[in-house]
């Protein structure tokens, strides 16, 4: 399995002793701090957590708690100011340009606003998930390898968009666009999926369908998921692990079943006030 191979590589690089009994987490975050400017307020004030190979982990919390920042730090769309982010055994913060690109292509990301290129076709949007593996010549003329095209068609069928392959992305409805986003992320054959509020631009019914689809696919491809979600009910339904953030601090970390009313009250204390 891919993950285990990667952990093994990571272990060798870090010179860690091989532990057989406890699996090394896919992602480990230690003492993460983020502030957007040197003098500005800290968004994250020292977060520690780990994501294991079979986790579907939700980050919940009131708006402004730093959920989105946390997710974006993992693939460095936002630069952290302090702490370690160990992904597949490598410290993401220490990667240079090329290494970061190679790391990013192993990370699938699904966005709140879908982030599709509206004027491109659905097919091209899905294929753009392979750009990290595509050379300059192929990407200039948009000639993707046959396997990529076949995989894109498979995935589009899997998310139920087989009839919209050649439509332009802006002709689709919100739910359909997010399915294109899912297909694009899975095109990368990701080893971890980051979801940044994947449902908050969708209505409740479609949100549930989309989350169910993501969960199904994540289980099928055995991809761990780190997800940030506004809707607590939806998080408890879909995820097996919950991390609660409040004002830059971690307030809760544990299995979804273990979450009690008072934990929620504590996380959302700011909003109650």
């Amino acid at each position: 399995m891919r993950h285990e191979r990667n952990f093994a590589e990571g272990r060798e690089e870090n010179g860690l002793p091989a532990e057989r009994e406890r699996p090394v987490p896919v992602l480990e975050v230690r003492n993460l701090k983020v502030s957007y400017s040197a003098s500005g307020p800290q968004i994250l004030k020292g977060i520690d957590f780990a994501v294991d190979g079979d986790d579907f982990c939700a980050v919940i919390g009131p708006s402004g708690a730093g959920k989105s920042t946390l997710i974006r730090c993992v693939n460095r769309l936002v630069e952290a100011s302090d702490g370690d982010i160990i992904l597949f055994g490598q410290d993401v913060r220490k990667l240079n340009g090329g290494e970061l690109r190679r790391m990013r292509r192993r990370i699938g990301m699904i966005f709140q606003e879908f982030n599709l290129v509206n004027r491109m076709s659905v097919m091209d949007n899905v294929l753009s998930g392979r750009l990290g593996y595509t050379g300059a010549f192929r990407s200039l003329f948009k000639v993707f390898p046959r396997e990529d095209i076949e995989r894109a068609l498979e995935l589009l069928e899997r998310v139920g968009l087989q009839d919209h392959v050649d439509k332009r992305a802006d002709e689709l409805s919100g739910g359909q666009r997010q399915r294109v986003g899912i297909a694009r992320a899975l095109m990368q054959k990701p080893e971890i999926l980051l979801l940044d509020e994947p449902t908050s631009a969708l209505d409740p019914k479609i949100s549930r369908d989309v989350m169910r689809l993501i969960k199904e696919l994540a289980r099928e491809f055995r991809v761990p998921v780190l997800c940030n979600i506004h809707d607590v009910q939806l998080a408890l339904e879909t995820c097996n692990r919950i991390i609660g953030l409040q004002d830059g601090y971690k307030k809760f970390d544990g299995p979804a079943e273990g979450m009690r009313k008072q934990d929620l009250d504590e996380i959302y204390a700011m909003e109650v006030l």
């Binding site: 990013r104 699938g108 509206n118 753009s128 750009l131 200039l140 990368q188």
Partner: peptide
């Protein structure tokens, strides 16, 4: 331009050229 698709292309590991060609160009072409 809308920066969001550009962010997406960067997130899949696209290089500078790919970001311009797939993220920016389709938006400004018309």
């Amino acid at each position: 331009i809308d920066p969001k698709p550009v962010e997406a292309i960067r997130a899949v590991g696209g290089n500078q050229f790919q970001v311009m060609y797939y993220g920016i160009l389709p938006q400004i072409l018309p």
